[in-house]
Amino acid sequence: MKECIIGIDAGTAFVKGLPVDASGTIVATASAPIPLSTPCPDWAEQRSEA
């Protein structure tokens, strides 16, 4: 198994991650949407446990 460093980007619409090996090669990528609720005009909410 290769040793890797994992990069994580937690944005407003998606969480993305990728492991990079010692030579700088991206081993894999993954992303998952973050649900966003807009209950009123100009409001935006995200559930912290989601």
Rank of each mutant, 00 (worst) to 15 (best):
P33S: 15
A44F: 06
G17H: 01
A30Y: 13
K2N: 13
I6G: 02
L36F: 08
F14Q: 05
C40S: 04
S37T: 09
A44S: 12
T25N: 14
M1S: 15
A10H: 01
S23V: 03
C40R: 09
A13C: 06
A32M: 15
S48H: 06
M1W: 12
S37A: 11
P35N: 12
P41L: 08
E3C: 01
G17S: 07
A22G: 14
A32E: 15
S37N: 08
E49W: 10
I6C: 09
L18G: 08
S48T: 10
F14H: 08
G17R: 03
A13S: 14
P33W: 10
A13W: 05
T12Y: 06
V15G: 05
K16M: 01
P41V: 09
C4M: 05
T38L: 12
T29E: 15
L36W: 03
S23E: 11
K2T: 13
T29M: 15
L36P: 02
V20W: 00
T38H: 12
E49M: 09
V15L: 12
I5P: 00
A30D: 15
A32H: 15
A28K: 13
I5T: 12
I34A: 08
I34Q: 09
M1Q: 14
S31E: 15
G11R: 05
G17V: 04
I6K: 00
F14G: 00
G11T: 03
V27S: 11
P19G: 00
E45A: 09
E45G: 03
C4P: 01
I6N: 02
I6T: 09
P35W: 09
G7L: 08
A10E: 01
I26H: 11
K16C: 01
I8K: 02
T38G: 03
T38R: 12
T38E: 11
D9K: 06
E49F: 09
S37F: 10
E3W: 02
I6M: 05
G11S: 07
S23W: 01
A50V: 13
P35E: 14
E45D: 09
C40N: 07
A22F: 10
A30Q: 15
I5N: 04
P19W: 00
M1T: 14
I6Y: 02
T12S: 13
V15S: 10
G7W: 05
F14K: 08
T12W: 01
L18K: 01
S37V: 08
F14C: 02
G7K: 05
S31I: 10
C4G: 02
G11I: 04
Q46V: 08
T38S: 11
E3G: 04
F14T: 08
P35H: 12
S31R: 15
P35F: 10
M1G: 15
V20I: 11
S37Q: 10
G24K: 04
F14S: 02
C40D: 04
G17P: 00
A30P: 11
G11L: 05
G17D: 00
F14V: 04
I5F: 06
C40L: 09
L18D: 00
A13I: 07
D21F: 03
A44R: 09
A28T: 13
E45T: 07
E3P: 05
T29I: 15
E45P: 04
A28R: 15
I34F: 07
I26W: 12
D9W: 05
S37G: 01
A28V: 11
V27A: 11
A32F: 14
L36K: 10
V15M: 09
P19A: 05
